[in-house]
Design a protein around this nucleic acid. Structure first.
Lengths: 228, 228
DNA sequence: GAAAACCGTGACTATTTAGTCAGCATATTC
DNA sequence: GAATATGCTGACTAAATAGTCACGGTTTTC
């Protein structure tokens, strides 16, 4: 508070989310309680975020839903943004890793079969990440286009990372002659957009018929188009 | 109030947005002031919503941005949701009308040429609505997947209407043999998703190369796919 | 099992916020 | 241009909210 230029909440962020600085104990009772509480907070937060939107949910509601005291929230998370980041961490890591892996494999691939296999692997890895974390994925789809300020920042940042990585992959695929020569950004965004919209509506309970057919239909649609 | 039995702010909504019930005057100075103020509020609100998200913006910030007193806001709008609805009205009407018109024309079309013309007209009408209201469209794309509660309700409702109408059109097109036989909802959502994502990123200032080529590329991509 | 480290609690403070309204200002009417 | 209708203002209230912290309970350590 010495220097002026009064920013309200400033960006002081020495440490980030996590149970606390996880002082020292062992793999015993404390660690167990910690895990339980952490999960309770994440679970309650996620449920409320999906129902009412990240920005409208208050810390009081979250602690109420988790059945803990308010002070405990602040032992585990710095603020709401921190909680969102924690909720998204598994998805963010899974998706980022899958995209990075695909890029690396593609760079080293020499045959078209290898290339196709890389894309197939990518699709499988993404599908696994989605299926393992449907609610966080829905939150991402629901709020991921918001401005990168406040509690939604982690969501928007993930969306931007996904876009950039996908553009890279698209560029590689195009250079390998696997795609028609549209600008890579255009192809990538169209594919992301179609995939995300379909995923969002499925996760919203929209009736899309036989769900097991959707992924195949999407790929067929994207690769060969809608024209009969 | 252990759980939630009563509605917090209730849904009392006797009248809706507008300058007021526009008492009586004429086409003179008062009406002029009214219009100016209305536009100032909408402009300030829209700018803040895009920058920081609908739910995070306060009424005080809006009146500050518009340069008016707080009481005046409430003369023109019931609350923030009401303002959002007003901001989106031109787009909502344009899009809804275009989709309804296309449905009607398609129902009466007898030749394939007429059908194709109807889709072309639709594309033109939608493009016009987008170009005439880029900021509201961006707001819709940014927040339109949020839950249909609070100030974002009008945005989500518009998104749902767009989806339903597009599904209808897709179904008609498919029955006319213009599309491959994917489930109509799947095709429709894929097209909407690709279109909206591309539009959102264009409006976010993303570099997509020659912008005049994007619509054509999108159509080509959707109709004939990415495969070379 | 006693001391020490750690943790959870919820009342509390300082802010922020939505919404109101009495009084002054401006436009319209005659 | 006086009388009246309408509109704008901003201080005010009540409610909500983020974040803190002293205290008492729990777990670990020795």
């Amino acid at each position: 508070m010495s220097s002026e230029t009064a920013k309200k909440p400033k960006k002081k962020t020495p440490r980030r989310h996590g149970p606390a600085e996880r002082p020292g104990p062992e793999g015993g009772k404390r660690a167990e309680n910690r895990r339980r509480r952490l999960r309770a907070i994440e679970r309650a937060g996620l449920e409320l975020f999906l129902e009412r939107g990240v920005e409208s949910v208050t810390i009081d509601e979250i602690v109420g839903g988790a059945g803990i005291a308010k002070g405990s929230f602040y032992r585990y998370f710095r603020d709401k943004e921190d909680l969102v980041e924690a909720i998204m961490a598994p998805v963010a890591e899974g998706v980022t890793a899958a995209l990075a892996k695909a890029e690396q494999v593609l760079d080293e691939a020499t045959t078209e079969a290898q290339q196709r296999a890389a894309y197939f692997e990518l699709a499988v890895a993404l599908a696994q990440a989605f299926i393992a974390n449907p609610d966080p994925v829905k939150l991402y789809l629901q709020e991921g286009r918001g401005p990168a300020v406040g509690a939604r920042r982690p969501l928007r940042q993930l969306a931007d990372r996904v876009m950039e990585q996908t553009v890279k992959l698209t560029r590689i695929a195009r250079e390998h002659g696997l795609l028609r020569p549209f600008p890579a950004r255009v192809s990538a965004l169209a594919v992301i957009g179609a995939t995300e919209q379909l995923t969002f509506r499925v996760l919203s309970g929209e009736d899309l018929g036989d769900l097991s057919k959707v992924p195949g239909d999407l790929i067929s649609l994207v690769m060969d188009g809608l024209r009969p």
